[in-house]
Amino acid sequence: MNLIEARRVSKRFVRKPDLAAKIAGMLGAPVKQAVVHALDHVDLSVAPGEVVGLVGESGSGKSTLGRIVAGLQDASDGEVMFEGKDRRTLDADARKRAYLAVQMVFQDPMSSLNPRLRIADIIGEAPLFHGVVGRAEARSYVSEMMNTVGLNPAYAERYPHQFSGGQRARIGIARALAVKPRMIVADEAIAALDASIQAQVINLFMKLRTDFDLAYLFISHDLGVVQHIADRVAILYLGRVVEFAAAEKVLATPNHPYSQALLANMPRVETGKHAFAPLEGEIPSPLDPPRGCHFHPRCPHAMPRCSEEVPPLKEIAPGWMSACHLNDRA
């Protein structure tokens, strides 16, 4: 059974009209309500202990999906199943446990820590509150968590500003771990760190995975990192999953033209100085996405059908999903 499964999850944000639009509307101009389809019928599953990488460009809906999976936002449509059950239908206690089981690690190591709390309280508050540990063991529990993520427990009484970026990232990880989650949603959790620190934190994530049998939804725009740690990779473009398969497949022989372009544009140390052959065109506005296949204005293989019909996400080989009309031709 999957640990987490998103079924046909959609998320719409209604942009409130700004003042100018309101005035124009009052004067009789046709002002249509701006709706962003941040997620459009997304299916995604994560098995216990599995690492799923989520890749996509800015605004493609990665964070939105991560926040829905972590329970920080509700989907507009579709459901998120935890161990096969819709979390909203569980009784209060089970629901709380289901939400605690999925913890998030955030991008900005500074803004995700409350600057007025000591590290001991940041890490220890929730487990103590939820009775994961008793008051008497709280101190040693915090020390244990700090040791687990590679922080010196002697620093427990310090405040977040007294730590370096990498240490703050570890504090955020310890806070998530302290409620004994089954899964971690890491939203660009290493993007704000320095190159030499990124490797340390990636190693920590991998160690925790084996030590605690954690599953991850690992959101990143860095294909190299995703390739390194993910079992399966989902590629998102403007709110839709365009390809979802084992990492070695998606990142070695991508099927979808967008995945191919992403991979071709990924900077690599190996290549040496060369002329870049970038994908043309802008990422379209999510307020007004192209009809049919969202990628068709930039796709080198676009056909007439692509601008009419949405390509469904279909299994093109066992465990390999892709959403492109090209797959119908063969």
């Binding site: 460009e57 544009n265 900077p267 870049f276 052959a277 970038p278 994908l279």
Partner: peptide, 11 residues
């Protein structure tokens, strides 16, 4: 910037 846009600017 995103990977595809970064590639455009570098080019």
């Amino acid at each position: 910037l995103d990977v595809t846009i970064q590639a455009q600017i570098v080019a």
